[in-house]
Design a protein around this nucleic acid. Structure first.
Length: 257
DNA sequence: ATGGCAATGTTTCATTGA
């Protein structure tokens, strides 16, 4: 199964690029974040015409997530939000897809250390940990994917010295990511040799993309039973090129049966 | 060879993102 995740930074704006990308990559499952639209404005018909069925948890202006599955791929048990964590922001949708529990998440940005938003991010990450611990008891094959908004290690940051202590690369956030790994999830990208300086997000400003000044903050994490079936994990930086790109690139993992 | 913020709504600026 080919599984991908992509923060599209407005599906309204990005739809043509998403359709192109689906035609080119033909994933079995695509998890989207930052739809920035309500469910009734979701371009369901266009995506169905492209051969994908969608499960959507949308929100106006901010957030919003979806799981798309190629026609013929079985999807069941759709759930939204983090059970037990009261959250007005639409950041999580989960579904069982072809026997794999897929949790599609848009982790809060956190703005800056010391702000309410940073506290919310840390509380959110702790709630996600509890959610994942419970999910791992119920689903042998589990994938936790999305814009997790944390660069887990120095090699995931173009300039770790400059970023140390800044949001996305604070010790507290790295610890939160480590705890997700601690419940039994593997970072699929690091199961393989990777080119150095591979990132999934680049600022729109300051020539960040051409200079490759990015962060690896989009991830596919897998339970032990799923990780051992992972045969590749890559980031498609080509999707960051050209006209009107998202500031994030898709992460793609392939799992054998 | 990439390109020098982008998207949204509160809309001609403010807010948010990362």
């Amino acid at each position: 199964m080919k599984l991908a995740t992509w923060n599209v930074n407005s599906l309204n704006v990005r739809l043509p690029r998403v359709l192109d990308w689906l035609a080119q990559q033909q994933p079995d499952v695509l998890c989207l974040q930052e739809l920035k639209l309500e469910d009734h404005k979701y371009p369901r018909a266009e995506l169905e015409a492209a051969g994908y069925r969608s499960h959507v948890f949308g929100q106006k202006t901010y957030n919003g997530v979806a799981i798309l599955a190629r026609d013929g791929v079985e999807v069941g048990d759709v759930a939204t939000g983090l059970a037990g964590f009261d959250d007005e922001q639409k950041r999580v949708i989960a579904a069982t897809v072809d026997g794999i529990r897929v949790v599609c998440a848009y982790v809060p940005n956190g703005q800056a250390v010391g702000t309410d938003k940073f506290d919310y991010k840390l509380r959110w990450c702790a709630a996600a940990e509890a959610y994942l611990r419970d999910a791992l008891k119920r689903f042998e094959r589990l994938a936790f994917v999305g814009d997790l908004n944390i660069a887990p290690e120095a090699r995931d940051v173009h300039d770790p010295a400059a970023w140390e202590g800044l949001v996305h690369f604070t010790p507290q956030e790295r610890e939160a990511f480590a705890r997700w790994r601690g419940v039994g999830l593997a970072d699929c990208f690091r199961l393989f040799d990777q080119p150095p300086m591979t990132f999934s997000w680049w600022d729109y400003r300051m020539l960040a993309f051409p200079k490759n000044r990015g962060l690896r903050i989009d991830h596919i994490l897998a339970s032990p039973a799923l990780a051992k079936r992972c045969v590749s994990c890559t980031i498609d930086r080509n999707a960051r090129k050209g006209e009107k790109p998202s500031d994030h690139a898709p992460v793609i993992a392939q799992f054998e049966k």
